[in-house]
Structures are given as structure tokens and as C-alpha cells.
Nucleic acid binder design. Structure first.
Lengths: 195, 195
DNA sequence: ACCTTATCAGTCCGATCGGACGGTTTCTCT
DNA sequence: AGAGAAACCGTCCGATCGGACTGATAAGGT
């Protein structure tokens, strides 16, 4: 009785976010294939019709998750980029490497690979890909300071290389992964120095 | 009547390879989730019982595909490594880049990501991961010539970086991908030169 | 020539998938 | 206060999933 007043819209967005949270968690824990409507509905604690009301189809649900995951990744990067202290390449490498270990990236990878053979998902993912690409580049470039024409390419190198390193270590966490990261820190400084 | 004589074992292995071929093709075209027993059986042109006789369960089928895919990738690399001509880094980068564009890698990526949340698949993939890792390193290192202590790490850089670049271009073939590859050719020579 | 054994074939079953639908509650607007 | 819209709920359905099962056929050993 104290607070029965809940604006309709507020309840709606709350339910919606609970569904997205459940879908995101299922995606990270069980993968794309196991992220069924039934499991998400059960995990979110809502009725089947409720989920279907917010997301008429499974594709719509996945599209919603896509935006959610993108925002989680952007938040993560933005939070890490707040320390404006003139950071060097070491910190940049560590930052990118840390982001790759996070659950949001695991979710993004699931969606990424699934999108290769899923037209709907691919269409939902496409516009957001560019968005995160630009944001990451701007953030990272801002951290390292644009001292040279080669910086954008070096940033690209760093992102791509660490992504590949991470991917190779998904199955069993390769012990040599950290050594690669450390070696790259030295290499990128070397490349940046010869500008 | 001309050749009704077919040794039992020969027919068996032929049927088995047809099933694997169908499973592989489905994996590349439709992805891991859509690679169902029914579709593979249909595509291979065998009866349901036949497939189930060779592979008692879906996991067993996937495990078989894993070995098949690994062999395809190894064959591809071995075939490319036959030109013993002392190749430089340019050729190495081109070789790795080409292998990443091939269907077998697409299949491997599907299995890779799926294995993250599939214990059976992960178990089947683990021993073969080391095998392909060693083979690729040995082959690539042999091509470039072991002139320096840093070569193994540079090979690792090349593989990881190109893998990441390729992954980023899965959705829409990024136009900048080739530029990254070309820039890396120059960068890796620069790194190798300062040994 | 017989019998064992392995390959191939087709049907059936329980579970679960995505999605459709009608009914009920709760907010909002006039 | 009353009408209308929107959020929510639960049940049902056709399709399809992985897998079990029983026969039919043909090869290989004796």
C-alpha cells in the first residue's frame, strides 16, 4: 500500500530490462544456441506472453540483446577511459586486454559468429559495429595521444592482435598469452618510436 | 553387375566420409546451431539409421567433424608450404591471411566458439588445438627462416593479428582490412630487422 | 553352403523449440 | 467515473529436435 503507484512506462522498461538481463546472462553462460525463448522467460521470471509482448519474435529479442551488449561494452570502455592521466601504450594494451576478458565481449563474440549465418542478426549488428569501432578508436587514441600519423594503425594492430590472442585462449587459457601481451607492449613502443 | 564387389570396409569408410562432408558443408553454410542430425543425414543422402550407426550421437558427429576440419586446415597449410623458396615475411603474411579466408577456418571458428559452452565439443577440440598450433608454427617459421630469437614471437603476432582482423570483417567485409594487412607486412619487417 | 557380423534402412517417441491466441489486470486520459 | 490502451499472464499448437528401436541386406570366415 505504501507504494502501489508504478507508472506504466516505468514498469514496462523494468520488465524489459529484466528480460534483457536474463537473455544476456544466458548468452554468456550457455551460448547463442541455448539462448531459447523459454529459458530466457524462465530466468527473467516472467510469463511467456510477457516476453512475447516485449519482443514479438526471437530475432527481436536477439536484436535487443545486441544493443544491450554494445552498451555494456561502451560503458566498460568509457569507465576505463576516465583517468585522463597521459597514459602510455602499456596502459592502452592492458585496457584493451582487460576488455577482451570481460563477459560482454564473450556475449559479443557469440552474436558475432552467429550473425555470420543469421541474416536478421547480421542486420541488427551491422550499424552498431561501426559505432563501437569509432568509439573504441577515439577512446584509445585519446589515451595514447595522437603523436604521429601511425597511431591509428597501431591502435588497430593492438585491437586486432589482442583479439586474436584472446580467441586462441578461449578453450584452455593458454599460458603463453600473457607473454604475447607483454611482448606486444615492447613491440608497439618500438614501432611508435620510429615515426 | 560389372562391379558389385565392394569390400565392406571400403563402403563403410566411403559412407562415413560422405556424412562428414555433408556435416562440414552444413557447418560452413548454416553454422553450428543449424547443423542438426536430420539436415546432415538428408544432405549426405543416407538414411537416419545409417548416420546413427556411424555416429551414435550428435556429439560424436561433431567430434568427427572436428578431426575432419583440422585435417583440411593442415592440408591447406601443407600445400601452401611446399614452395620451399626462401620466402620473406610478405609471403608468410599472405599465406596466413589466405588461410583465414578459407571455409575450413570458418568451420573451425564455429566449433571454437561453440566449444566455449559445450563440454563434449571442448574435450574433442582440446588435443587437436595443440596439434595445429605446433604445425602452423613449425611451417611458418620454416618459411621465414629462423634468423633471430624474435621470430617465434613475430609469427605469433602475425597469426593473432590477422585472426583478429579477419574476425572484425566477418559481418561486412571491412574495406580497411587489406590496408591493415599491408601495413603489418611493413611493421613486421621493421620489427624483425632490429634483432 | 552356412552362419556370424557389420552396414544400411525406415519408423517411432518424448522433449522442446518458436510462435499464436484469448483473457485479466493496471495505468492513463477525458 | 468510465472508456480505452497497454502491460501482463498462461495455455495451446505444429514443427522439429536428438535418439531408440527393429528389420533387411550383404560381406567375410568356416
Amino acid at each position: 500500500m505504501s507504494a502501489p503507484r508504478r507508472p506504466q512506462q516505468e514498469r514496462s522498461t523494468l520488465t524489459r530490462s529484466r528480460i534483457l538481463e536474463a537473455a544476456y546472462a544466458t548468452l554468456v553462460e550457455d551460448g547463442h544456441g541455448a539462448t531459447t525463448v523459454g529459458r530466457v522467460q524462465e530466468r527473467a521470471g516472467v510469463a511467456r506472453g510477457t516476453l512475447l509482448h516485449h519482443f514479438p519474435t526471437r530475432s527481436a529479442l536477439m536484436a535487443g540483446v545486441v544493443e544491450d551488449v554494445i552498451e555494456r561494452r561502451l560503458d566498460l570502455l568509457a569507465a576505463a577511459g576516465t583517468n585522463d592521466a597521459t597514459a602510455g601504450w602499456d596502459e592502452v594494451v592492458d585496457l584493451v586486454w582487460a576488455e577482451l576478458q570481460s563477459p560482454p565481449f564473450a556475449a559479443a563474440l557469440e552474436l558475432w559468429v552467429a550473425a555470420r549465418t543469421d541474416a536478421d542478426l547480421r542486420e541488427a549488428l551491422r550499424p552498431l559495429q561501426d559505432r563501437i569501432f569509432v568509439t573504441v578508436h577515439r577512446g584509445v587514441t585519446g589515451l595514447v595521444g595522437a603523436d604521429g600519423d601511425r597511431v591509428p594503425m597501431l591502435v588497430q594492430f593492438t585491437i586486432d592482435l589482442l583479439t586474436g590472442t584472446h580467441l586462441a585462449g578461449i578453450l584452455h587459457p593458454r599460458p603463453g598469452a600473457d607473454a604475447v601481451v607483454e611482448a606486444w607492449k615492447a613491440a608497439v613502443v618500438e614501432l611508435a618510436g620510429d615515426a
